[in-house]
Design a binder for these strands. Sequence first.
DNA 1: CCATATTGCGCAAGAATCTTGCGTAACATC
DNA 2: GATGTTACGCAAGATTCTTGCGCAATATGG
Lengths: 148, 148
Amino acid sequence: MDGIDRAILRKLQENGRMTATALAVGVGLTLAPCHRRLRELENNGVIRGYGVDVDPAKVDLGFEAIIFVTLRDRSSMKDFEREVGEIGQIIDAQRLFGEPDFLLRVMASDLPAYQRFYDDVLVGLPGVEKLTSTIVMKNLKSGGRLPL
Amino acid sequence: MDGIDRAILRKLQENGRMTATALAVGVGLTLAPCHRRLRELENNGVIRGYGVDVDPAKVDLGFEAIIFVTLRDRSSMKDFEREVGEIGQIIDAQRLFGEPDFLLRVMASDLPAYQRFYDDVLVGLPGVEKLTSTIVMKNLKSGGRLPL
DNA sequence: CCATATTGCGCAAGAATCTTGCGTAACATC
DNA sequence: GATGTTACGCAAGATTCTTGCGCAATATGG
C-alpha cells in the first residue's frame, strides 16, 4: 500500500470501469505492473468489489427517508438486525452508540409508498420501541467516496 | 426500461466490472444487444457512473461517525453546503426536513483523529448552532444497493 | 564491500473482450 | 395486409486483458 496504490483506488472511485490501460497511464505505470497491483488490491481485500451508481429517480425510487430506531431491549437485537438485512428497501443500516440504537436509510417510490412501507414493515420490526422518520430534502453528497 | 434493463442493473450492482459477455449470459441476451442496452442506460443517465468498494479499515479509515447538525439560521445554508462539499472526510451529507437540518457521515482513522477533526473542522462550519455526534458501532448494510 | 535474495518494473504475444455494421424477425400502426 | 419501428443475433476488426520472461533497484547477509 503505497502512493501508487492509493492513486489507483482514487482513479477507480472516479470510474470503477476504467480500463487497466487508462488506469496505468493515470498513475504513471505501464499496463503490466498496474494490472498486478490491481489484482493484489482485490486479493488483499482492500477492494471488496465494484458497483454501479444508479440514479434512484430513474428507477422509480425518488423518495428517500432516514429513520432513527430505538429498541425496547437488547434481546430483540439479533432478530432486528437479521430482518433489516433482508429488506431491500433499507439500503443502509448502522448500529450506533447511545441514542438512537440504529439509523436506517430507506428508498421508496414516493410518499404514499413510503407511508405503506412504514405501516406494513417498519413498525413491525422486532423489538422496536420508537421510530423517528425524517424525509431527505436534498442529497448533498453520496456514493461514499473515501478520502485517499 | 424493462425487466432486462433492471436485470442488467441488478447484475452490475453485484459486480460493476463484470464483462459485457458475462452480463449478456446473465440476463439471457447475446453480447451485442446487451452491450447496446448498457450504453443506452449510461446515455440516459440511469447509470451515472461506476465505483469501487474499498474497505475503509484497510486504508486507515476504521472510524466512522454520524453527525446531526442544526443551523442557527437559513442565511448560512449555502456557505455550509459549499464547505461540506469540499471536505473529503465527510463522505455523505443530506439536508433533512425538520430536525436536525443536516445529517453527515464522517470517516477518520481513529477516535483521536476524529476528535481533532471535530474540533478543527466541524465546529467551525458556517452557521452551526448544534452538533450531535454519534459513533458507528457496526455497519449492518452499506454500499447503497438499490432494490430493483 | 561484495554476493545473493527480493521486489517491482517494462516488454511482448496469445487470449479474451469490446465495438459496430448489417441482415432479420417480431410487433405495432393504420 | 403494407409499412414503420424496435430489438435481436451474427461476425470481424479493434481494443484490452493476462501472463511469462528478463532486467534493474533496493534490501539482506556474510
